[in-house]
Simulated assay, not measured.
Amino acid sequence: MPLAAPIPILRIFDEAKARAFYLDFLGFREDWAHRFEPSLPLYLQVSKGGCVLHLSEHHGDCCPGAALRIATEGLEHFQAELLAKQYGNARPGVETKPWGREMSITDPFGNRLVFTSE
Rank of each mutant, 00 (worst) to 15 (best):
G65S: 07
S47W: 03
T72D: 08
G27Y: 03
W99K: 08
R69G: 09
G93Q: 14
F109M: 05
E57C: 07
H77Y: 10
T116K: 09
P92H: 05
R91I: 07
F28W: 09
A33R: 15
A84N: 15
Q79N: 06
L113H: 01
R29C: 00
G65P: 04
C63A: 15
H34N: 08
P98T: 11
I12H: 04
A16W: 09
H59M: 11
P98D: 11
A71M: 08
I7C: 09
P38S: 05
A4E: 06
K48E: 03
G50I: 01
M103S: 02
W99N: 10
C62P: 00
L3I: 10
E73Q: 12
P2K: 14
R35A: 09
R69L: 13
D24S: 14
H34F: 14
D61V: 08
E81H: 14
I7K: 07
W99C: 06
L42Q: 10
T106G: 01
K97T: 15
L40Y: 02
P2R: 13
L23R: 14
P8I: 07
R35Y: 02
A20P: 10
P6N: 14
F115L: 01
G60T: 12
Y87D: 08
D61S: 11
H59Q: 14
S56H: 03
N89P: 00
K85R: 15
T72V: 10
V114C: 12
A67I: 04
T96P: 01
L10I: 02
Y87K: 06
I12V: 13
A5Y: 08
I105C: 02
K48P: 00
G50A: 10
L10R: 01
A16L: 13
E15F: 04
G60S: 13
Q45D: 08
F109D: 05
S47N: 11
A18L: 02
D31N: 15
P108R: 10
D14C: 08
H77G: 13
C63H: 12
F21W: 04
M103D: 03
L40W: 08
Q79A: 12
E30K: 11
Y43C: 06
H58K: 14
W32A: 10
A16G: 07
R11Q: 09
K85S: 15
T72P: 08
T116Q: 10
C51K: 00
L82N: 06
I70S: 08
R101I: 11
P6L: 14
Y43W: 15
R35L: 04
